[in-house]
Amino acid sequence: MADRAPIDLTKLIIHAVALLLVLSYALPYLYLVSTALKPAVDVQQIPPSFLPQRLSLENFTSVIGTVGLPEAFLNSAIVAVLTTLLSLLIAVPAAYVSALYRRRLTMLFMLFALITRMVPAVSLGVPLFQIMKTLGLLDTTIGLVLAHTSTAVPLAMLLMAAFFEGVPKELEEAARVDGCTRFGAFWHIVLPVMPSGLAITALFSFIASWNEFLYALLLTSESSKTAPIVIAEFNSVYGLAWGPMTAAAVLYSLPVILVTLVLQKQIVGGLTFGAVKG
């Protein structure tokens, strides 16, 4: 008994702190949601109130009626999904050999990937615009996917390499002894034990593309315009339409929240991965 009590207390404190941390982190988001639910005129009340004093869906109805917003949501989704797939397709093999076949070439390549990530996007926007224009890919889904993938690949490579580092080289060697080709070992043996790493990498690629603003602003105009641009348009020279903007932002965050919920299992799957390794 004397031994158990302090342990429970520690657990309790840990739970309490975790809860507090999570709540304080959620507060700004909750405020965004609660703001979206206020009538437009109350949004910038002085002094502000956290909870709506009057509930109203007028921001949501006005946003759904906004020309181009549903299309922009769809564009964002298509671009983000394609970016995620393409990034994984390009980054995962490179990360694999960088982690498991460590040699001068792969080391240099990782360094190179790191360097490409350092280029400030603001300075690449203009040259990228010219490239896309030459390729005839301006204002196309493919053009934006390529641009987003160019920023997502380095991060995906670094993340995947870090996850592959955790894979014992013996696993690959054992697979090869069992008759797998190098590619077979990669595809059939190593990849399947890393759902957690893949899920997290996919998630980050997806989110980066979903939320990207600068390239989307420059490289799309009408037919492939993504939602962050439309959301930014609420902030016009004639004032910031806070109500509709928060409503659009809330709606825009919902699909990603869903994606995260779906991937929760994979993220927790890291546990299984640890077991494999042990």
Binding site: G68, L217, S221, E222, I229, A232, E233, N235, S236, V237
Partner: peptide, 8 residues
């Protein structure tokens, strides 16, 4: 019309 944000 191609509508973009102000700075755009």
């Amino acid at each position: 019309f191609v509508e973009v944000p102000y700075q755009g």
